[in-house]
Design a protein around this nucleic acid. Structure first.
Lengths: 221, 221
DNA sequence: GTCTATACGCTGATAGAC
DNA sequence: GTCTATCAGCGTATAGAC
């Protein structure tokens, strides 16, 4: 476009293309699976140029998985919409690359751990309820649930998540997640709390095996 | 022991040791990261014996990630205790190997998807509430949350999960998970949020102006 | 600045000696 | 039955020609 396409600008542009290709390749194949040759081919450059720009494959990976600054943590609903791709077309390439490699690369695992730890920490502090001993656990619950949903949606493509609507997010998922943060919510208390006066009769159906497990609290390690 | 320590029995025993070593190695390094040589060394046998017994590395992996038949799905609390290692010392080696590789191996991803899909399906059918359109979503929510907790606990070692007690499982995690399955819960419908104070209404502006993550999400091949 | 050629290690897998 | 020796391929990374 501009007539002044200096060599430095050209090089920077090439570096940017390489980085984008690396994000895509890392996001698809992971750190080990992605090869320098494939990244170069995707970027339309020579393999040696990739190492020329970023020194090594690991250094390139470290650059490629730098997550965008997570501005507004408070808006859980927006974040959930982004992460489930209801609003975004898909996951951001940095996130996809980091998640893809977090189980097989110690560096990626560490980066993801610190990212989620801080998220949980900020989420715990943002809670308005009294900070009891379970506060950090509750925040971590939410963070892990979002992580599990991200994987189930974008990496495993589970059947139950392939067509979630924004309405379902607001009506089902979001209330459930916010409830986990509230220690006073009846849903996160020991005994089943029937708040409304028998709204649907035996809605708590204790004969169902899924709800009977909270009785035996004797076991420990 | 028996006088008939035949060569066939010896061979079967060797094969079993190889399989155990493979599970441990796959669980630690993943399918790509684990090498036939390392598996053999862990088992105390020659590398060629590994291929001799199982034909190929992929075939060995397929054997190694055969999850134990999940008998009683109903007992969510027990499953949660197992999966978080509060009861078990750690994750079963098959599970660990499969989870470790599910993001980088298409075969492992497919195996995990089908496993979780069936789990969610059975969980949805076990619900006593009326099967509305959100039933499969609710069951998948629980399944994904457990998956996320498993990863956060055993693979990322998040701070908020490093010392969960059985009591916390019963008092906060379990009620939260079971609540997700119940559509008749009065708070499973849109209610006021706890933390954000916004984004609870369904029609909360879905078209924000500044989203940092969506900038680099345009390019693809 | 970019590409060619290549060094070097490690991988899975195979054939044959003991 | 088990192990030794080896092959063929692909990986990253580097040195030097254009």
């Amino acid at each position: 476009m501009a007539p002044t396409t200096s060599r430095a600008a050209q090089r920077a542009e090439t570096g940017r293309r390489i980085l984008e290709s690396a994000q895509a390749e890392f996001g698809a194949k992971g750190l080990q699976g992605a090869t320098v040759r494939a990244i170069a081919e995707r970027a339309g450059v020579d393999p040696s140029l990739v190492l020329q720009h970023y020194g090594s494959k690991d250094a390139l990976f470290a650059e490629a998985v730098q997550l965008p600054v997570d501005d507004d943590l408070g808006d859980l609903g927006r974040h959930l919409r982004d992460v489930l791709g209801v609003r975004l077309g898909s996951l951001p390439p940095q996130t996809r690359a980091l998640v893809r490699s977090m189980l097989t690369s110690p560096e990626a695992a560490s980066a993801m751990k610190h990212f989620l730890d801080e998220r949980a920490h900020r989420l715990a502090r943002a809670g308005d309820g009294p900070a009891d001993g379970d506060t950090s656990l509750r925040a971590t619950l939410v963070v892990c649930a979002i992580l599990g949903l991200t994987i189930g949606r974008h990496f495993l493509e589970l059947d139950g998540l392939d067509d979630v609507t924004g309405a379902q997010l607001d009506d089902v998922v979001l209330p459930w997640l916010t409830a986990a943060l509230d220690p006073t919510d009846p849903r996160t208390r020991p005994s089943q709390a029937v708040v409304t006066g028998s709204a649907t009769g035996r809605s708590a159906g204790t004969n169902d095996s899924a709800t009977t497990a909270s009785t035996a609290a004797s076991e420990n390690t």
